[in-house]
Amino acid sequence: MSVKVLLPNAFQKHTDGTKEIQSSAHNLPELITEIETSFPALKTHLRDEQGQVRRFINFYVNEEDIRFLGNEKYDFKDGDEVLVIPSIAGGCSPHGDTRFAPSQLCCCSYCGQEECSCA
């Protein structure tokens, strides 16, 4: 059994750029443990001082908030797509660069392709 897990941009600084993983976790607690084992650098960021997974991190299974599916009790099914998204996340993290340069990031403009040429 395997599920596809998509990680947000905000994690990539701590995952050496990995955006997507395949996991054999059976449920959410197993998945979080697996992510932390694969990316030890992420672990301290993922949990607060009490060791709880930070409240602003949301998990979705096939478009649905996992809290509507039973949260930790939900059993992953083969082929599930799991999205990890911090609340209101989005945008391209400056990756430590203090200057923001729109042209270096994602699509330059309207067409939306990652390597677009419509600038």
């Binding site: 941009n9 949301n58 979705y60 996340a89 989005g90 945008g91 994602c106 699509c107 990652e114």
Partner: peptide, 19 residues
């Protein structure tokens, strides 16, 4: 909103209530 988070990570658009 969740979709917009994903879009804002991929496209260089200014989402007023996301990025």
């Amino acid at each position: 909103n969740r979709l917009c988070s994903q879009i804002a990570e991929r496209y260089n658009w200014g989402f007023v209530n996301v990025n």
